[in-house]
């Protein structure tokens, strides 16, 4: 009986820190009715110095169009390994993309910024369409994009 309790205590002790180090975060992006094809969106994070840290999501599955997500493409060199497993379909005009990710706690209140680059076929590219600091206080606060994004918010 004692060994069972000890085992349970040990597994709990090992599991809790892991749970505490990440949390589900929902990223909600609503597009304007811009009257074009589906938009490609790259969601990625930079640190306080502006250096690329990694990607959170890629909306749009064809790599040949990624060069139009100019800031993301410049930061990554178009490396599709950056978005393996976090890629989905492009988003139509007027639609809302809702992504729930298990994100590290260390991303928040540490000077990181979430960026969104957007591109639409036969329309102007829009790098850095959204740039929003990742803070716990900023959760749930919608921000407006420059061209294609009507609103973006993250919720924890």
């Amino acid at each position: 009986m004692k060994s069972l309790l000890a085992t349970l205590a040990l597994t709990t002790a090992l599991t809790l820190p892991g749970l505490a180090m990440a949390r589900p975060v929902t990223l909600t992006t609503t597009l304007n009715s811009y009257g074009g094809d589906g938009a490609y969106l790259a969601l990625y994070v930079t640190d306080a110095s502006g250096a690329y840290m990694g990607s959170l999501w890629m909306a749009g599955t064809k790599s040949k169009y990624y060069e139009h997500l100019t800031d993301w493409y410049r930061a990554t060199g178009g490396d599709t390994a950056q978005v393996n497993g976090i890629t989905g379909a492009s988003v139509g005009a007027g639609r809302t993309l809702e992504i729930t990710l298990d994100l590290a706690d260390a991303l928040f209140d540490a000077g990181y910024t979430l960026h969104i680059d957007a591109a639409v076929e036969d329309m102007r590219d829009s790098p850095n369409e959204v740039a929003v600091p990742l803070t716990t206080a900023g959760a749930g606060t919608p921000v407006t994009g420059r061209r294609y994004i009507a609103s973006f918010a993250y919720d924890m």
Partner: peptide, 29 residues
């Protein structure tokens, strides 16, 4: 050019330090 990336759900997210080890990404349009 580069190959198309693996869609979400087919492989794990990249180990870029941004993700935890919990639930896989969920997406809805």
């Amino acid at each position: 050019g580069a190959p198309n990336p693996a869609p979400a759900g087919t492989v794990a997210p990249p180990q870029n330090g941004l993700f935890g080890n919990g639930a896989p990404p969920q997406v809805q349009v």
